[in-house]
Amino acid sequence: MFNHFDDRGQAIMVDVSGKQPTLRTAVAAATVFLKKETLSAIIEGKISKGDVFAVARLAGITAAKKTPELIPLSHPLAIHHAAIEFSTDENKGVITIEATVRAFERTGVEMEAMVSASVAALAIYDMCKGADKGISIGEITLLYKEGGKSGTYRKQQNKSSDSA
């Protein structure tokens, strides 16, 4: 079992140098709650700061690449793919963000996907805060991961954590 602490209790970056690189994929999600009118304005391109989804997409992709600068013990990875997709529910005023990250590496890309979804959500907040003071960001969660020794994980609906 990997540990982020040495035998003296000091934080360390896990040594993955002995592991073989494999294709790693992770998908994470974040949820943004806002007024229905604000979501309509986003969809219609009427937010004064510009194209909310375009800015959030770029913020999320950039965040995936910057994860080791933000999460102290994460490894710098050569990200081979990062993508952000949005789905909306205009009746509820909800945006769901899905971040997918892929790399051929010695360690997983779960943190990169989680940071990506989180920062995309924060970018939506930033772009829309002038129009809607009540925006909130909900659950940020890992939906899927594959690659490496631990195998595949798929989050099951309505459960906090289950393996596939």
Score class of each variant (00 low, 15 high):
G130H: 08
A82G: 05
A78K: 15
M111V: 02
E98C: 12
G138H: 00
P76V: 04
A120R: 00
Y153A: 05
T96R: 11
H75M: 11
G151Q: 08
G138P: 02
T96I: 09
G148W: 08
T141P: 02
D89T: 03
C128L: 07
D89G: 05
I97T: 03
K149Y: 08
I124P: 03
G138C: 03
Y125C: 02
D126L: 09
T141F: 15
G148Y: 06
I71D: 15
E85T: 12
E112Y: 00
G147R: 12
L77Q: 05
G138K: 02
N91K: 14
K149A: 13
E146G: 10
G151A: 09
T107G: 03
A103C: 09
H80K: 15
T141N: 12
T107A: 05
S136Q: 14
E90N: 10
F104Q: 11
M111E: 10
R106P: 04
A83D: 14
N91R: 12
S118Y: 01
M111C: 04
T88Q: 07
T96K: 09
R154A: 13
H80C: 13
R154Q: 15
L122C: 13
S150D: 12
Y125L: 02
M111G: 05
D132K: 04
A78R: 13
V94C: 05
G130D: 10
G108M: 06
T107I: 05
Y144N: 10
K149W: 02
C128F: 00
Q156I: 14
Y144P: 08
P76E: 07
I124G: 04
L142F: 13
I135E: 08
V119T: 09
K92I: 06
M114G: 09
S116D: 08
Y153M: 13
R154I: 15
S74Q: 10
G93D: 00
N91G: 15
M111L: 11
V119R: 02
L73G: 12
I71K: 14
L122M: 14
Y153R: 02
G147H: 09
P72M: 01
A113W: 06
S74Y: 06
D126A: 12
G151S: 04
D126K: 08
S74F: 10
I95E: 00
D126Y: 12
P76I: 02
A120L: 02
A82W: 03
L73E: 12
M111F: 02
L73M: 15
L143N: 15
K155H: 09
Y144D: 14
V119G: 04
